[in-house]
Amino acid sequence: MMEKPFDPAAFVEGAAPLLKIALTPESRAGAILHLTIAAEQADLLMSADLGDEDEPAPVFRP
């Protein structure tokens, strides 16, 4: 099955009501731009070879 390309505009439009954030034309455009940059960064991060047993950095100490 072909992977569907990411549509940042649709994502922002759909997520804003979930987060109860009101968008304006200006903030919508800015959020789309920054979501696109974040997705590029995430492509790099998510390709890191980490396993199930790798612990996250902060360890809670009771």
């Binding site: 954030i21 800015g30 995430a42």
Partner: peptide
Amino acid sequence: VRDRLIAGAMLPGAW
């Protein structure tokens, strides 16, 4: 600042 924060609120927890 606003637009980066709005985008940040939408990012997946897995990231």
